[in-house]
Design a protein around this nucleic acid. Structure first.
Lengths: 189, 189
DNA sequence: AGCATAAATAATAA
DNA sequence: TTATTATTTATGCT
């Protein structure tokens, strides 16, 4: 039916240029190629973004609004366009981590350097739990809000998450529960 | 999406079933009821979580941020939703709904007392970036998708935009990239 | 009208 | 409490 239109792939072969625009483990060139191919295909089928989104939502869940499709693809193309316009831009170095590190190491930091900034402490990437994992976690929580170290380890292992991540989940969950109870006791609602 | 949470799910009336979902001395079913009621009430008043939080902070102390309200209530509902999937609900209970309705129809309206004022705070004017700005931003993004606070401030200053605007730009950009990757991985095009 | 995307809101990991 | 991510809404273009 109608997702067939999207199914197969003209898939530009190659283009994995060695320019190595790799961000977060993905190659930006590939992304840009994909975006272009997707749009061409959509236009070839005479569909609007909204229509494609609706069609996809049938099979993929309600995850593709017009906005999603647009934001997913358009900006990649814009980026491609812009960067090809001018390859030579002046190279202001904002990438501070090294600079920062150097400055710090050389002891040249002043107070002003720290105002309004945080020490760029690489926050851990937010993990997202699968519904299955959540189900198990919630079930466990209802039985015991304070799992022992062993239990936590067991859960972590069983679910394939880091132990610390599971531990924190229970912390947050207890906090949420406590907040709710507090609000209830204040007679809200 | 989250209307679904409110939609059904078996509303144990009077609860306290002997199944006794009691954790730490509190009945989880009550909690879930409360969470649902609270949200319904908030939506009924046309308020955001942030607004409610601010209003409550006036009387209750600075203890209710948007996050607090969300974390207090949303996760309870999620848990309710998940667990209701399992216990093959045969039991649509409309009385519960009515009870709920009565409870807050007759109950304290003090939320409204503190709010009422401006539910609308003038959406910020959409800024439009110059091509030059976009070029620099994109270039930076390709080097680092998660700029530190300092880097953001630096970019904002250099380009003459508000810091927040730049920060949001990166958020949206990351989102766009992620959407693309997601679509790619689904084998589209 | 349809596209592109900034801004706002909700949810929740750290 | 903070910071980010996920999703939605709304606005400026073409």
């Amino acid at each position: 039916e109608d997702q067939d239109m999207l199914a197969d792939s003209p898939n530009q072969p190659t283009i994995s240029q060695s320019s190595s625009n790799v961000v977060d483990g993905i190659n930006l060139e590939d992304i840009k190629e994909f975006a272009k191919a997707f749009k061409l295909r959509r236009l070839g089928l005479g569909l609007t973004q909204t229509q494609v989104g609706q069609a996809l939502s049938v099979t993929e869940g309600p995850a593709y609004s017009q906005s999603a499709i647009c934001s997913a693809l358009a900006s990649q193309m814009l980026a491609a366009q812009l960067s090809s316009q001018q390859q030579n831009m002046s190279r202001l170095d904002f990438d501070g981590r090294d600079n920062l590190h150097n400055r710090y190491a050389s002891g040249q930091n002043h107070l002003t350097d720290f105002i309004g900034m945080e020490p760029s402490k690489k926050r851990k990437r937010r993990t997202s739990f699968t519904p299955q994992a959540l189900e198990l976690l919630n079930a466990h929580f209802e039985r015991n809000t304070h799992p022992s170290g062993t239990e936590i380890t067991g859960l972590a292992h069983q679910l394939g998450y880091e132990r610390e991540v599971i531990r924190i989940w229970f912390c947050n969950k207890r906090q949420a529960l406590k907040n709710t109870v507090r609000m209830m006791s204040k007679g809200m609602v």
